[in-house]
Design a protein around this nucleic acid. Structure first.
Lengths: 375, 375
DNA sequence: GTGGATTTGTTTATTGGTTGAATTATTTGA
DNA sequence: TCAAATAATTCAACCAATAAACAAATCCAC
């Protein structure tokens, strides 16, 4: 099997990139194993030599990304193996969330375990962004200190906001918070205990989708739909979040469902949001499922997405919504006869976005362990 | 800038992969240059050393992928450079197309130039798949022989069909041709002059989208919509065709536009096809543009696609359709205020799919020149 | 013209990383 | 107690990129 690399990449590749790639390969292999594989098992799975795997594993153990543990029970003769597992004492991700009525912070270690979780209920609408983010920063600092007392090293932070976020972390607009052009990384970084952390910001639905990705396990391609005041969607294609060219993807709330229907605050008519948004859900639920089904059919027809995850306010209503949605999917998806679309409720509940945020941090470490090792 | 590789790849990387990657990098760099860069210029652009570039270029020249040419006019002192250009005498791609009323074959060289083009008008509907593909195979053989007499080496063939194609090249169903489960690669390969060629098959709209990609130049992300009897779409994200998990993406013709509208042959109601398909175009054109605008708005809201290319029967009608489509896009796309969607007619005309097919062959060589060199 | 400056391209020693074979370590089973 | 088996390490060889020195070919200034 020829080893392939990215093709149209514009960066040159040196030997050090080979090591970087293979370090990630080994780390992934251990992380995706259900048992605790030996170096030899990793070599067999990856196709690398045992010698190479040994050298790579030594680096990863020295850097606190892997640990040697009890091996799985023996099967025959031979020198006993040393089991490998992702370290629970190495780098960790700080996940943050700010929403209309609460602030939350959590720390997730490399194994995906939530090690700290702090939440504070408070109405953020009257507060100005600086105040709100300072409060969140203090919460985050507490989570960080508690985690580091536990032996973890927080590698970075990620913040989930209900709004449109630019590439540089600037929150362009978050209607429900009343924010506009807020430099969230800078305001959070003003809290002294966070000053040294790299901080990224992303949309709530995007991060919630990533949070579900980790839990979902099997399916690397799905659409996550989050019913809130508005309706957001995070599209995960092949394990990667698809953000769109300018980061404006996922606006399923403004997909037209009834061309001459109810006027929407966006200026158009018949947007999904008017039939399946939280206000509409309170009123005439009957239309919600059908409207969702119509919009989701469009997604599946266009993208051949095999799985749809319903989150936010939709998760608790899943049983109620399901029949209506599936009816429309069965009718309107061209290929539904060949393979029906799988509909699932979100599993993480209100923490999905925060978990997804923490996950982006540890995912960065897992995808490029070499960068962590040479820090 | 740290050199990054694909992260969650499951293949190990050796030194030979480094060379493979850098060969592709050099070839791409020369291909994307408007002038005829020297080895030193390529080194400066890529970040590789001049020594390394020299070695890589030598391999590419020896393998017939690059040629040394007159350099661009001198600018100052120093030893004169040797210009580099993609070879027009090396590997080439054979592009094939079969449609209701014609067969066509072309050969495109590595520079993207069409070197041979053969077409034959004939009604394929009465013919059985074997007959039709044998006729096409003979046409292809003529194109291949003519190209090889010209010094080219045909590296492979790709066939565009108006239907659903499985991963292995099996045509599942092509309604307008009356085909079902046709093993096109095997039938084409039965023509003796093609027996040694690797043959791939893909959907017409997908390949037409790729054809437009090469011509489009600037935009690596766009939606190509082709109005035929049905309506197909090819989605190009970041320079790559997005096929969907099972290869069923792009079914924009069955996106719901009017939920309680006209019944469609697919069993649903209000599909785009019923308002903007070729039959509908003949009748009540007024609705076509609005219906297209509604469906395309959904695409843009979901995927943040900045450019839409109208092809097939839509291309000649572009001026007529444009205002109606743009009106709906402006109204229904949430972000249209920040950046309007660019609407463009296709430029390749009826040859788009065939050109795109040939392009997939030469793209494979360009993306992995090492594989070609060690053939 | 003649020599220095300048740029291109090649040569050579070095470095980093994987491989493969041999070696050491530690167990099971006869 | 010894042979077979499996795990992990050591070491020489190889491959590819780098850096620095060198050769080649031009321009420009005097």
């Amino acid at each position: 099997m020829p080893a392939r690399l990215t093709s149209p990449s514009s960066a040159p590749v040196r030997q050090s990139s080979v090591r970087a790639h293979n370090l990630a390969l080994v780390l992934h292999t251990v992380a995706n194993s259900t048992d605790r594989p030996s170096r030899a098992a990793v070599a067999a799975i990856t196709g690398l030599t045992r010698a190479t795997v040994s050298a790579l594993v030594d680096d990863l153990v020295a850097g606190g990304l892997l640990t040697e543990v009890e091996p799985p029970p023996r099967t025959g003769a031979g020198r006993p193996a040393v089991g490998l597992a992702v370290s629970a004492a190495g780098p960790a991700g700080l996940g943050l969330e700010i929403n209309v009525d609460y602030l939350a912070a959590c720390v997730v270690d490399l194994t995906g375990t939530v090690r700290q979780r702090f939440a504070e209920h408070a109405d953020q609408r009257p507060a100005d962004p600086g105040q709100a983010l300072t409060m969140l920063g203090r919460l985050a600092a507490r989570a960080r200190l508690a985690a580091e007392a536990d032996g973890l090293i927080v590698a970075g932070a990620a913040l989930a906001v209900p709004g449109l976020v630019a590439d540089d972390g600037l929150v362009r607009v978050a209607p429900n918070l009343g924010w506009q052009d807020v430099d969230a990384p800078a305001l959070l970084g003003a809290v002294p205990e966070l000053a040294d952390l790299p901080i990224t910001v992303d949309n709530e639905a995007n991060l919630a989708a990533l949070g579900e990705l980790r839990v979902t396990g099997g399916d690397p391609t799905f659409l996550y739909v989050s019913g809130e005041v508005g309706i957001g969607a995070g599209l995960v294609l092949g394990g990667e979040l698809y953000r769109g060219v300018r980061g404006w993807s996922g606006e399923i709330g403004h997909v037209t469902v009834f061309p001459d229907g109810r006027p929407c605050r966006c200026g158009a008519r018949g947007c999904l949001e008017q039939y399946a948004g939280q206000e509409a859900l309170a009123g005439d639920e009957p239309l919600a499922a059908a409207a969702l089904g119509i919009a989701l059919s469009a997604v599946v027809n266009l993208l051949d997405v095999p799985v749809i995850v319903l989150g936010g306010a939709y998760a608790p209503l899943f049983a109620t919504l399901r029949p209506g949605i599936e009816e429309e999917l069965a009718r309107r998806v061209l290929t539904s006869g060949m393979a029906p679309v799988v509909l699932r409720p979100a599993t993480l509940g209100p923490d999905a976005a925060m978990r997804g945020a923490a996950d982006t941090v540890i995912r960065a470490v897992r995808d490029d362990p070499a960068a962590w090792l040479r820090r």
